[in-house]
Nucleic acid binder design. Structure first.
Lengths: 130, 130
DNA sequence: ACTTCTCACTTGCATTTTGCAAGTTAAAAA
DNA sequence: TTTTTAACTTGCAAAATGCAAGTGAGAAGT
């Protein structure tokens, strides 16, 4: 599995999600993306091989999981696990930093900052009905 | 300068500090590192060329700066700018994530979590006397 | 004054990661 | 039954990372 550079929680976290794409994927999933094509259609234009590899790594690291395919679809939807959802405060702080420190960035929608780790990892039954 | 993948503040932040080393350097500086050799002696064992290049990039991005060399030293000490210090909440959340989600990580000292952006970027005069 | 040491890097080169473009496979739609 | 679409895989070029060794300038020792 991942070799950690040290016992430091920050360095170790970066050994897992310290790249240009992992937290972009987490952001997209916080915003509701669940399929491979949802993730491909983000404005950042991730390439297909990188997305596939990142999804594999995030799954191996236990941050996301693929639910069992429902009938009428070949593959299951991706969802954040509790561990992955625990990154929400990190991406929110990153968003605040980007908004305040980099000129002309978009303002994320309210519901992005309102998201809480507990809103995810529903374990079973996709009870996301309104 | 940096080319941003999109207007998203998260993706743009990652375009600047989305790698394995930048936030490790910020962490070390929050903990008091000010010289090249301070930064080299962190437990993560960054190699010299990477450190030099990262320092250059962080300086170009306005996150750190090198103060004017005092007499008796050839180069000035590195310090976080206000923009760099604004990353403190990000590294703190990352630390919380690492501590709670990865087994057997070190517990950062109190003063790490107590650090506030306002404690840095003293602008002039190194008034860090006890 | 002259050699030695240390600090802050630079350079060369191998390895790994990232990125683009095109191809594949299976199921859903026409 | 041909065509689309969704979810990838493969090949190869380019960029980032990492190791080891080298450099230059001021500080320290003698």
């Amino acid at each position: 599995m991942t070799q950690f550079r040290s016992g430091c929680p920050i360095a170790s976290a970066l050994d897992i999600i310290g790249d240009k794409w992992s937290l972009v994927i987490v952001r997209a999933m916080v915003m509701g993306a669940t399929s491979y094509s949802d993730l491909l259609s983000t404005p950042e234009k991730i390439s297909t091989n990188i997305l596939a590899e990142r999804l594999r790594r995030l799954e191996d690291a236990g941050l996301i999981r693929q639910s069992l395919p429902r009938q009428g679809s070949i593959r299951g939807a991706y969802a954040l696990t509790a561990r992955g959802a625990a990154l929400i405060p990190v991406v929110q702080e990153l968003a605040r930093w980007g908004e305040t420190q980099i000129p002309d960035r978009w303002t994320p929608p309210e519901r992005f900052y309102a998201a809480r780790p507990g809103d995810f990892d529903v374990r079973d039954g996709d009870a996301a009905a309104d």
